[in-house]
Amino acid sequence: MKMVRVIISFWVLLFVNVVSAGVDDTVWQNELKAQFFAGRSISEAENIIAIEAPYRAEDAALVPIRITSKINQTNDKYIKRITLIVDKNPIPFAAEFNFTPLSGKADVAMRIRVNSYSYVRAIAEMNDGQLIMVKKFVKASGGCSAPIGADLDAAMKRLGRMKFKLPSTAQSNEPNLAQLLISHPNITGMQMDQVTRIIRPAYYVEKVKVTFDGQPVLTAKTDIAISADPNFRFYFVPQSAGDLHAEVSDTDGKTFSQTYRVEP
């Protein structure tokens, strides 16, 4: 009898450990899957996209995530959309990126907030509607780290500043990497400003649209899980010289834009 109890408590302990470490799919299985992909089947496979994330979030406010595609974007077969979800965040939907054949490669890198031990998952939707998912488990950081930008005044002062960063030489007719930096505090809601005593709603970048010579390259819908000063890396294919143009809008309806001249 005593032995049995020892064994049982051992299993209970083991179970508790696993649950508290949070390596579980339950939020996804029970809620999120139906919420975002009701009635659709999603296969888990590594042949379309891969996701890179640090096993431990060094800074809860800024966790680099990189999604790389394993197929080229062609008119016949391309990745239409990648949705990024952080299971255990207060708002699990992080972003949705829409690509076109003109994107060249449906790669995208960004920085996100990870509040708790959680899976970060990317779901790719093909142009024929097929859904393929990859995921990585991220351990939340401990200590004083919080999923908040460190220097709010600096971010507010720079609000709306944007820049493109590209390698010095561009190659025509092949995928070129571009980085877009957007200065925005991306504040989570509910906090109160002590000076004005105003409760602010969340204030964040919600739309990003990048075109090359007027043709869409990347269109993103983003939410509060994106770190302060949103930063995206992606590809585009220039046939000849042209303008890389970004338009960004936030939840207050403010819009910001930036143009970069590309000369292959």
């Binding site: 509040n115 708790s116 939340a140 919080a146 908040i148 709010l152 989570t188 906090q191 109160m192 002590q194």
Partner: peptide
């Protein structure tokens, strides 16, 4: 002068994880 704001921004997170951490 920024402490109240910082507490407002971070405390929900600190409280949420206090038991676990």
């Amino acid at each position: 002068k920024n402490l109240a704001r910082a507490l407002q921004l971070r405390s929900a997170f600190y409280l949420q994880r206090s038991e676990e951490q």
